[in-house]
Each structure stands twice: as C-alpha cells, then as structure tokens.
Amino acid sequence: MKKTYHGSCHCGEVSYETQLDLQAGTFRCNCSVCRKKRSWLAVASPEDFRLVAGREALGEYQFATRKLHHLFCRNCGVSSYAWGENEALGTFFAVAVNCLDDATADELVNAPVAYVDGLHERYDAPPEETRHL
C-alpha cells in the first residue's frame, strides 16, 4: 500500500513529497554513478511525486545515454532523487530511499531490494555480483 513520505537533501534546501509502496520493492544499480553513490532507489510515477522546495538549488548531471537526469543539491551535494524516461515506465522519478526523512527503520529493513545491471543496460536482470552494492 502506498504511503506518503517526505524526503530531502542533507541541508533541507531540496525537499519533496512522494507516495511509495516500499513493500512493492526498491532497487540498487551497478552503473558507474549508482555504484559510486551506493544509490538505493524506489520508483515513483509523476503523479506520486511533488517537489516542495529547492528547484533553484538543484544541479543536474547526465552521462552516457543521457536518459536519466541525476539531480543534486548544489549546497550540500546530496542526490535525493532523479528523473527519467524509458519505454516500460514512461516518465518516472527514482527516489533515494535513504533520503526519506520519515521512513521508519522497520520500513527500510523490510523493503525488498532488487538489483539491476545498469552497467550493461540490462535493467531486467541482476548483475553477476551484488555484494558491493
């Protein structure tokens, strides 16, 4: 069941509300950016995501196929969400689970985690190794 969560960067300049069902699953990716950031993400649809504050504080980084818009707070550097488009999902938001301010420890511990092989653009399959993610 979806629940409304509030998320933010470290300094609080960027904040958002999102509706997620953490029990429906989260994911970790092994692409070069996600691996370096140790990203832990959940997908939200556009109707389930609302930026509350900080649009002017956002920086953006894109690489490779430039399909994802990796956003970060220019003040504290934290990447609390990204957005992109793909054939299966359409427009989507990738919310950093670790930036959900009101997610309980129990909700986080019990959230299923899937692994995707973004390094080889195989988002429907896990990479051979996941222990480092």
Rank of each mutant, 00 (worst) to 15 (best):
A53T: 13
E107M: 08
C9L: 09
G25D: 08
C34M: 09
V14D: 05
V113T: 13
A64R: 14
L108V: 13
L71A: 04
D102E: 02
V95K: 04
D102S: 04
R28L: 02
C31K: 05
W40I: 10
G7S: 08
T91S: 08
L119H: 12
T65H: 09
A114M: 13
A94L: 06
S79L: 10
F49R: 04
S79G: 15
L89T: 01
S80A: 15
R74C: 03
V33D: 05
T26P: 05
S8E: 04
T91L: 07
G77Y: 03
S80H: 10
C9H: 05
V116M: 14
A64K: 13
L41K: 14
D21G: 06
L51F: 13
K37R: 15
G118T: 02
L108R: 11
S79N: 15
L100G: 03
R28W: 00
A103V: 00
V52M: 14
E13H: 06
C9Q: 12
A42M: 05
D102L: 02
G12H: 14
E87A: 13
V116G: 05
S8H: 12
K67D: 05
Q62I: 04
G118A: 02
F93E: 01
S15A: 15
V95Y: 07
V97Y: 09
V95D: 03
F63K: 11
L20Y: 11
C73N: 08
A24I: 01
L22A: 04
L20W: 09
L119Y: 11
K67V: 07
A44F: 05
Q19D: 12
L71K: 07
K36P: 04
L100M: 12
A53E: 13
P46C: 07
E121K: 12
K37I: 03
A42V: 09
T65V: 00
E87L: 11
A24E: 09
L119N: 06
L51I: 02
E60L: 12
C76R: 07
K67A: 12
T104D: 03
A111F: 10
G84P: 00
L41M: 13
E47R: 09
Y61N: 04
T18I: 11
D117W: 12
T91E: 05
D48E: 08
G77W: 04
E56D: 15
A111C: 08
G12E: 14
K37H: 15
L68F: 09
C34E: 08
W40R: 12
L22V: 02
H120T: 00
N30W: 07
A114P: 00
C73T: 10
N75D: 10
W83I: 00
R50K: 15
Y81K: 00
R28I: 03
R74S: 08
L89Q: 07
Y81C: 03
S8C: 09
T18W: 07
C29N: 00
A42L: 06
L100E: 10
F49I: 08
R35D: 13
R66V: 02
F72P: 03
P46F: 09
Q19F: 00
Y16V: 09
S15D: 14
S15E: 13
